[in-house]
Write a protein that binds this DNA or RNA. Sequence first.
RNA 1: GGAGAGGUACCCAAGUUGGCCAAAGGGGGCAGACUGUAAAUCUGUUGUCUCAGACUUCACUGGUUCGAAUCCAGUCCUCUCCA
Length: 373
Amino acid sequence: MAVTYTLVKECPETGARAGVLHTPHGDVPTPVFMPVGTQATVKTMSPEELKEIGAKIILSNTYHLYLRPGHELVRAAGGLHTFMNWDRGILTDSGGFQVFSLGALRKIKEEGVTFRSHHDGSEHFLSPEKVMEIQEALGADVIMAFDECAPYPAEREYIKDSLARTTRWAERCRKAQQRTDQALFAIVQGGMYPDLRRESASQLVPLDFPGYAVGGLSVGEPAELMYEMLEATVPLLPKNKPRYLMGVGTTDYLLEGVKRGIDMFDCVLPTRIARNGTVITRDGYLTVRNRPYADDFRPLEEHCGCYTCRNYTRAYIRHLIKTNEIFGFRLTTYHNLYVLVHFMAEIRDSIINGTFPDLYKEFHARLGHKKEV
RNA sequence: GGAGAGGUACCCAAGUUGGCCAAAGGGGGCAGACUGUAAAUCUGUUGUCUCAGACUUCACUGGUUCGAAUCCAGUCCUCUCCA
């Protein structure tokens, strides 16, 4: 098996799990937050910095790397790990999210999806088979089945058709798979309809994929609705396989996701808001770009052990951001990723120590609302 | 000394057949958004007030006119060229 999962401990009070994802590029303790490096780089971070932060696995993207520089070039480079000098885990998203985010530029059919390139308008056809070919050329440890991340809100009938097609696409991906050293995860869809979530899961689970993702969430719906969908989905997923909640990455969502049995998360939010002048703290967001921090000589977050907080002040970082200096984006990105990666490690420890419910209560009181610090 | 060009809001800069001008557009400032990255992006806002409405602004002073950033006269200042 390319990638296996070991369940280390499960919180008896909640559904929280501590485990290990074993990959050809090292073990990944779970629950885990995976930084996103869409174009074969986590924007502004070097691989060395990512390791320093504690990242054990990162994301990259099929659609984007297919367009540029082209998967054949990555293959010629020796695969994504070699190409980008990252010897730890990599997961590639299938392009399913681009079916959603490039909504105006694509057309969905049973056979696959026609995209008009957002670079030059050229037309490209991605099918489950093509996506598998690309992902095998890229060579990530975990690869994703081609799916449709459906929009919210969406009609029940639309979601029903979409989820069924996503299942058929997952089967086609499975059939097209040739490499045996990559784990192909299927993606549960179903929109915001609990019964359709269950329908999707019940179609995919018997196909026995090495891991399952929950997709189509965090697309604009209220938080409570997302939690409800998780509760409808996760209990149907096999306990001995990793569960991955796609596109989720605020501290409160992470905590709530873990509580409901999720093992893996990814999100562009920490890196994106970092570049837009906002940092994540244990107590909420801090928009360090704003005026009040102009002469604030404290670190971004007191007691944070990250490189940024050990060496730089809010005033300096605000200055860098305001002057559009690259180093500013690097410092905020570093901090945000550090916070999430370490938050997950802390959660994992608490699950193993049996104190997760306490940690949950503590953070539940602090999170869930945005607050300037 | 002579010839010419010009002075518009925090900065740059449109606007000079008089009204539709509190005044385009940039930049800067101040906020907001961001969740499997079309994102170092996008959106809002940026004269004053008791903000619907009213008031004071386009170098300065005076004038023409129902009405002036726009027309006239004078003053101050800036730049270019020629001596």
